[in-house]
Write a protein that binds this DNA or RNA. Structure first.
Lengths: 183, 183
DNA sequence: CAAAACGTTCAGAATATTCTAAACATAGAG
DNA sequence: CTCTATGTTTAGAATATTCTGAACGTTTTG
């Protein structure tokens, strides 16, 4: 009964991590489940073992595990005596977080900055439009850009292990003279 | 040509924010586009105007805009002389960020904590299993839980506007005596 | 070298998500 | 009270994503 119970516990973990991952915006549900299986195992597992444990095709595991390795959540390790690739859950969560902050959140926030910049450039030469309208658009773009840039800097600092004062973000809100116009 | 150019610029912004939102894990692409349209407009728009601008059905706009309002990214405002609902982009990005941190990230991280707790409880009574195995599982769960709890606390502090030292996260890694075992 | 054991790629099946138009509900106008 | 204008819900269509099994390429084994 002991083994059964432990396996039952593992299933709880796999399910929990799966649903958590599914809503994370970073990992798919299956990736969460793969990680969960590996994390509670004290030895590396092969692709087939994972596929068996999760009742998924080997190809599906193969493609999904790649993402986990890229996020440094899982390591591919060699197991002597076996030709198969084996995988092991990583335990340096801080490293993983840095990776996610850098490659996901910052990358995303930079998209916003880029959009503001591009749009600003495109709007610059909108000749016949009323001056007031152009000014309005540029102000808004500037406000969003400033906020995004502050967030970007904040994430960078955080990822570097530096101290952050979120107050700098709170200040960046509406530009002077703007709030009256929009309502 | 001026108007055309400005509209072209708006399209750039709508597209940019759309793709950024699509990969954000928080907003859908359409939600990003709706926000973009509203953000560059100096007066509130009705559902139909938004639907027209984005070439989407009114019902689709209706359902998607609800999420934007919930995140406080868009406000529903009354426009005198019209019975229609009108919507306006919010400009308090810091508030929005707090909202997202609280209701999305923290909620997500709590799922992980809950999974660890549930699993720990379920594994507790795994009688016949070897003691070493049970200890191993509990240690791992504890390590993940500790990290998640630290992240949770960090986000909370950040959302409150307090200063954060990410160092506290870096310390939480592998528990003593653990790292040797797993490899 | 041939055969087997792998991991990966890919076309299509299975599934989930997003979108639309119609039905519905509610409130205001006449 | 009836008719109209409006936002929401919903069933099904359109689309996108995830998953599988077969095909493929590579490496190891005999």
């Amino acid at each position: 009964m002991g083994e059964k119970r432990l396996d039952r516990a593992r299933a709880v973990f796999v399910d929990g991590m799966g649903t958590a991952s599914a809503t994370s915006g970073v990992l798919s549900q299956l990736q969460g489940r793969i990680f969960a299986i590996l994390y509670l195992e004290d030895h590396p597992l092969s692709l087939d073992e994972i596929a068996e444990a999760l009742q998924q095709s080997k190809s599906n595991i193969s493609t999904n595990i790649r993402g986990l390795v890229e996020w440094h959540l899982v390591r591919r390790v060699a197991v002597r005596g076996s030709r198969k690739d084996h995988y092991q859950a990583a335990d340096d969560f801080w490293r993983v977080m840095q990776e996610i902050m850098e490659r996901r959140f910052r990358w995303n926030i930079r998209q916003v900055i880029a959009a503001c910049d591009e749009t600003g450039r495109a709007a610059e030469s909108a000749g016949a439009t009323s001056r007031a309208e152009r000014v309005f658009v540029q102000r808004r773009l500037q406000a969003l850009r400033a906020f995004a840039a502050a967030v970007d800097a904040g994430i960078e600092a955080f990822a570097r292990g530096e101290t952050i004062a979120p107050t700098s973000l709170q200040k960046i809100q509406v530009l002077p003279g703007e709030s009256g116009k929009s309502r």
